[in-house]
Each structure stands twice: as C-alpha cells, then as structure tokens.
Write a protein that binds this DNA or RNA. Sequence first.
DNA 1: CCATTATTCAACCTATCGGTTGAATATGTT
DNA 2: AACATATTCAACCGATAGGTTGAATAATGG
Lengths: 107, 107
Amino acid sequence: MLSAALDDTMLALSDSTRRAILQRLAAGEARVTELAAPFAMALNAVSKHIRVLERAALVKRRKAGREHFLSLNPAPLNQAADWIEHQRNLWNDRLDALERALAEHDD
Amino acid sequence: MLSAALDDTMLALSDSTRRAILQRLAAGEARVTELAAPFAMALNAVSKHIRVLERAALVKRRKAGREHFLSLNPAPLNQAADWIEHQRNLWNDRLDALERALAEHDD
DNA sequence: CCATTATTCAACCTATCGGTTGAATATGTT
DNA sequence: AACATATTCAACCGATAGGTTGAATAATGG
C-alpha cells in the first residue's frame, strides 16, 4: 500500500464530479459520453476527470471499437477505507485508555 | 453532509504529510512545533498543512499562551468513511444481483 | 468515399497546492 | 527592557488542478 497510491485515491475522491462518476459506475460500466451527460461541462473535462480516476486505479477502461467502457475497480476504495478505519481504531483505543484511566482515578 | 465538506476532507487526506499529522494526533494533542519535528520541511509548511486540516475540520486548535495545541476531530473522518462504505454497498449489491441473475440463467 | 460519432491530444487560462524565505505578532524569560 | 520562543502572515515560486477551445485520431454508417 504505497503512500503515493493513497494520495492518488484520496485526491481522486476530493472532487464531487468524480465521486458522482464513481457512484454512477457502481450501477455498471458506462461509456465516456454517458458519464459526461449529467454534467454542465464539456466532454473534455469529464475525460480528464476519468483520467484522474484511472491514475488512482479506481476505474478501468475497456475499449470496444471507438467506444471506451469504464468500470469501477473497488480495490483502491478498500485501501482508503482501511486507512480511515485504522485511524478511527487508534483514536478509539486512546479514548478507551483515557476512560479507563479516569475510572481508576475515581476509585 | 455538504459535498464541499467532503471535498475538503478528501483533499486534506490526499497528502502523506497531513495523514502522518493525523496519525500523530490520534495519540493525543500536540503543538505545532512538535507536529513539525519529524518532517524535512520548514515549520511554515507544516503550519500550512495544519490549516488545510482545519479547513476540513479534521483538526481543532486550542491556544494556550503562545502555544497552539492541535487535536483530532473525528467527525469528518466518519463522513468520509460513510461515503466510501456507501459506494462499496452499491457495488456489492450490484454484484449480488449479477450473481443471482447468473444463477437463474443456469436453471 | 464521405460524413458522423466517440474519444483523446494539445495549448491555454486562472486558481490552488506545497514548498520556500523573511518579517510580523504574541508570549514567555531573564 | 531585551531577548528568545511559538506561531502566523505575506510574498514569491514552480507544479498541478480543473476548466475551456480547437484540432487530431479512430471507428462506424450511409
């Protein structure tokens, strides 16, 4: 789990257009034009967003003729979730320790 | 859960220095200078990283004299985890539906 | 062959990032 | 008062983000 991979994943997730694209892809693969349709921006901008998602490996591309089908790759999402979960565990462990210390102090 | 808040949170998490700062803060509050010590960069750079974390509300500041004590605020981390978890559920639901469809097709 | 469709590439623009240095501001110490 | 410490502010820098427009490339359909 390279730190740079997590950088790329989190950065990719830091834009609402890209998060919406991922959400759409959870329902199944889609072409670039389909992905771009809901957004008030040029197709080129969406094409760039997809490239950011690909850099993070959140999305993979299958070319069929002139059409490019994008689909979700959940692995980096899992890594991001793992990092956050790890942080929450550290945090909770410390809070538990504090509680125990306070309880002892009350004895 | 404003989308812009999630933007800020994910962006804050997209830099390894900032992730390391959060990890350090999971062990308890720390001053700016203490947070900066492990890094090969000027104190000012770390001060800026802290500002990014504050913008995302991942960190809160308590001033005691000339010292600023930073501590973790886990709420935005939870929101980020929720978003990712939601995506994973969508994804898994769809895969389950696919499996069921395949099973029926085999009958 | 020609026109249309799907997509990327390239150049450009403005804004922000992540770092620097130097100065300012507060607070603490002697 | 003078000095040192903790921190931010301000200006600058090169690199990247996120968008645009226009042209290139590739595949499809008449």
